[in-house]
Amino acid sequence: MNKSPKFSPEVRERAVRMVQEHRADYPSLWAAIESIAPKIGCAPQTLNDWVKKADVDSGQRPGTTTSDALRIKELER
């Protein structure tokens, strides 16, 4: 079952950018996420997942990047 994404990549990028730009205005990352998520129209946990993935992709957090995950998926086929 393929689920179409509710949010476009542009909206996701904008939301992550908003969190990163306003992180210092809040006492914690979660507080920033809880404040910004309703403005985007998503759940705070969804936005938190996007922020984490962006941190991994930019090298600020350890983990498998999006491009590596796609490459692994292709190789497994």
Rank of each mutant, 00 (worst) to 15 (best):
M1N: 14
N2A: 15
N2R: 15
K3V: 15
K3F: 13
K3D: 15
K3L: 14
S4V: 15
P5C: 06
P5T: 10
K6F: 01
K6Y: 02
F7A: 03
S8A: 11
P9T: 03
P9H: 02
E10M: 09
E10D: 10
V11A: 08
V11W: 01
R12A: 01
R12Y: 00
R12Q: 07
E13N: 09
E13C: 05
E13Q: 07
A15D: 04
A15N: 07
V16F: 04
R17S: 14
R17I: 05
M18W: 13
M18G: 03
V19R: 00
V19K: 01
Q20G: 10
Q20T: 12
Q20P: 03
E21A: 12
H22G: 03
H22F: 12
H22A: 11
R23S: 10
A24R: 14
A24I: 05
A24E: 15
D25G: 09
D25C: 06
D25S: 14
D25E: 13
Y26M: 08
Y26Q: 08
Y26A: 07
Y26I: 06
P27N: 05
P27T: 05
L29Q: 15
L29I: 15
L29N: 14
L29P: 05
W30V: 15
A31D: 12
A31N: 12
A32G: 09
A32N: 03
I33K: 02
I33R: 01
S35D: 14
S35L: 01
S35G: 04
I36V: 09
A37H: 02
A37P: 01
A37I: 02
A37K: 02
A37R: 00
A37L: 05
P38W: 11
K39F: 04
K39E: 14
K39P: 02
I40A: 05
I40E: 03
G41H: 08
C42I: 04
P44C: 00
P44I: 00
P44L: 01
Q45T: 15
T46F: 03
L47M: 05
L47S: 02
L47T: 00
N48I: 04
N48A: 14
W50F: 09
W50E: 05
W50K: 06
W50Q: 04
W50R: 03
W50P: 02
V51T: 10
V51P: 00
V51F: 06
K52D: 08
K52C: 07
K53M: 11
A54K: 07
A54M: 10
A54V: 11
D55I: 08
D55Q: 14
D55Y: 14
V56S: 03
V56H: 00
D57V: 08
D57C: 08
D57M: 06
D57L: 09
S58W: 11
S58M: 13
S58R: 14
S58G: 06
G59R: 12
Q60I: 11
Q60M: 15
R61H: 09
P62Y: 04
P62L: 03
G63L: 04
G63Y: 07
T64K: 12
T64A: 09
T64M: 10
T64P: 02
T64Q: 13
T65W: 07
T66N: 06
T66E: 04
D68T: 13
D68N: 10
D68Y: 06
D68A: 13
D68I: 11
A69I: 01
L70P: 01
L70F: 08
R71S: 12
I72L: 11
I72D: 08
I72S: 09
I72R: 13
I72T: 12
K73T: 15
K73D: 14
K73P: 02
K73C: 09
L75S: 04
L75P: 00
